[in-house]
Computed example of a mutant assay.
Amino acid sequence: MPAAADLYNDIALGDAAGDVPGRLRRFFPGLAACTCAAAAAAWLSDHYAFPVILLGLLVGLALNFIADDERTRSGLDFASSHFLRVGIVILGMQVTAAQIFQLGAAPFAALLLIMAVTIGAGLAAARIAGQSPAAGLLAGGATAICGASAALALYDVIGRKRLPEAQFTLTLVGISLASAVAMSLYPVLAAKLGLTDKQAGFLIGASIHDVAQAIGGGYAFSNAAGADATIVKLARVALLAPVVAGVGLLLPLGREASGAPKRKLAMPWFVPAFLGVVALNSLLPVPIIAAQFALALSKALLLLAITATAMRTRLELLVSMSWRAGMPVAAASVASFLIALACAVLVA
Rank of each mutant, 00 (worst) to 15 (best):
D197G: 10
S258I: 09
V59E: 05
R312D: 06
V59L: 13
F337V: 13
L341A: 08
I53K: 04
Y155M: 04
L303W: 04
T35I: 15
P29E: 03
A331R: 12
T171F: 02
A227M: 14
D46T: 12
C343E: 12
D228N: 10
S80P: 00
I289K: 10
P242F: 09
A348T: 12
F65I: 12
I215E: 08
A151S: 08
L240R: 09
L7D: 10
S179P: 00
R23A: 14
F293L: 05
F78K: 07
P242I: 12
V20Q: 04
A79K: 00
V244I: 13
G159V: 00
I204K: 00
F65P: 11
V52K: 12
I231V: 15
A116Y: 12
A124V: 09
P261C: 06
L318A: 10
A139S: 14
M1P: 14
R162D: 11
L185V: 15
L185H: 07
A105W: 15
P29G: 03
L163D: 02
A3C: 14
A224C: 00
T307N: 05
A142R: 02
A62K: 03
A67S: 15
P21F: 05
S298L: 10
G254H: 15
E165W: 02
V271I: 15
P242S: 10
L138P: 01
A342T: 11
R127L: 09
P51A: 07
A116P: 12
L315R: 14
L113R: 00
A182I: 02
L239K: 07
L251R: 07
A49T: 11
A37S: 13
G92N: 03
L57W: 07
A41F: 07
A124N: 00
T307E: 11
P252Y: 08
G140I: 03
A40Q: 01
I215C: 02
A257R: 11
L318C: 08
G141M: 06
F337I: 13
V347Q: 11
A116Q: 12
A191F: 04
T72F: 01
K198N: 13
A153P: 09
A348S: 15
A245F: 15
R263C: 11
L240I: 09
E165V: 02
Q102A: 14
A182H: 02
G18Q: 03
